[in-house]
Amino acid sequence: MDGFELCHPVDSANFLRIQEAIAGENPTSQWSPMPVHLIGRDNAKSLTRSSAPSLGAFLLVLRPEVVLAMGDILSTSSELLTLRAPALTLFLINPKATLDVLDPERSEVVRFASGRLMRVTKWVLKGTALPECDVFKVAGFRVSPPVVSERFVQRWQECGFQGLEFRQLEHAVAGA
């Protein structure tokens, strides 16, 4: 989200390592804490402290206080991969489930030449309700943006966390 602090690997080559871990191409059992640094300035402008420092559009990084407050939600649906910033441990969220919930006919999608999803500009989900899963990936992406439940959003807001922007996703209407 614009105006909030960022999180980047100390070694930029680790962006690929992160993507491979989240995409399931490298076993996360081999994950070792990755060194990162927080970026609190953009040119001359100070960035606001974030409960979820941005590592990229398809990656969700959380501060320890978020993991503590939302542990029950995260523990059943996600794997926590450790990131080490100076004097701070952060957690990269790796959703365990990949669900086929996107209605590609009603959504607005951009695809790679291979047919794999690149980006979704308008999300429409199949059916009328999401499965009972608080954080998940969407099938069809190499690295899917994390999708979170209403329960996740409510807890986030109740706790007063900042740095994420949520969008309500549409559901396809049967027979429409």
Rank of each mutant, 00 (worst) to 15 (best):
Arg17Gln: 11
Ser107Ile: 02
Glu132Pro: 15
Ser78Ala: 14
Val173Phe: 06
Gln168Glu: 15
Asp134Tyr: 10
Pro104Tyr: 02
Gln168His: 11
Val66Thr: 09
Pro86Leu: 04
Pro53Phe: 05
Phe15Glu: 08
Arg119Ile: 09
Pro27Lys: 14
Arg119Tyr: 11
Ser78Met: 06
Ser114Ala: 06
Val110Cys: 03
Arg155Gln: 15
Leu169Met: 15
Lys137Ile: 00
Ala57Phe: 05
Leu99Met: 03
Ile93Phe: 08
Pro146Leu: 10
Ala113Gln: 11
Cys133Trp: 00
Pro27Phe: 10
Ile39Glu: 13
Val110Phe: 14
Phe4Thr: 04
Gln19His: 12
Arg111Gln: 07
Leu16Val: 14
Phe15Trp: 09
Val148Asp: 05
Gly3Tyr: 04
Gln168Ile: 06
Asp42Trp: 01
Gln157Asp: 14
Ala174Asn: 01
Arg155Asn: 14
Ala52Gly: 03
Asn26Leu: 15
Lys122Pro: 04
Glu65Asn: 13
Asp2Pro: 09
Arg142Phe: 09
Arg41Glu: 00
Phe112Asn: 12
Phe4Lys: 04
Arg17Asn: 09
Ser54Tyr: 05
Asn26Cys: 13
Met70Thr: 09
Gly56Val: 12
Arg155Ile: 12
Leu74Ile: 12
Leu6His: 11
Ala69Lys: 14
Ser144Leu: 03
Arg63Pro: 05
Asn14Gln: 13
Met34Gln: 13
Val101Pro: 00
Arg106Phe: 01
Ile93Ala: 01
Glu165Trp: 14
Ala174Ile: 07
Glu132Trp: 01
Leu125Val: 02
Phe4Cys: 04
Ala13Asp: 13
Ala23Leu: 04
Glu108Gln: 13
Asn94Lys: 14
Leu169Trp: 06
Val173Lys: 11
Val61Cys: 07
Val148Tyr: 04
Val66His: 09
Arg142His: 15
Lys122His: 15
Ala113Arg: 12
Pro131Cys: 02
Met118Tyr: 14
Gly71Tyr: 05
Pro131Trp: 02
Glu150Gly: 11
Ser149Trp: 07
Ala23Pro: 05
Gln157Asn: 15
Arg84Asp: 12
Gly115Ser: 04
Phe161Asn: 11
Glu170Gly: 04
Ala57Gln: 08
Pro27Ile: 10
Glu150Ile: 04
Ser75Lys: 11
Ser46Asn: 03
Ser78Glu: 02
Ser29Gln: 15
Pro146His: 07
Ser32Asp: 11
Arg106Leu: 07
Ala172Tyr: 01
Glu150Arg: 13
Ser50Met: 00
Ser78Tyr: 06
Phe4Asp: 01
Glu158Met: 15
Arg41Ala: 02
Val109Pro: 03
Pro131Met: 00
Arg142Leu: 14
Ile18Met: 14
Pro95Met: 04
Met1Lys: 05
Phe4Trp: 13
Leu6Phe: 08
Ser46Cys: 00
Gly160Glu: 11
Leu117Tyr: 13
Leu81His: 08
Glu165Phe: 13
Trp31Ile: 05
Thr28Pro: 14
Arg49His: 15
Ala139Thr: 05
Leu117Ala: 06
Ser51Phe: 04
Val101Ser: 00
Ala21Cys: 10
Val36Asn: 07
Ser75Asn: 13
Thr76Leu: 06
Pro27His: 10
Val153Pro: 09
Arg17Pro: 05
Phe112Asp: 05
Ser78Ile: 02
Val143Asp: 13
Val148Cys: 07
Pro131Ile: 00
Val143Cys: 06
Asp134Ser: 15
Ser114Gln: 05
Leu83Arg: 07
Arg63Asp: 00
Ser107Phe: 02
Thr28His: 15
Ile93Gly: 02
Val10Asp: 12
Thr82Asp: 11
Arg119Met: 12
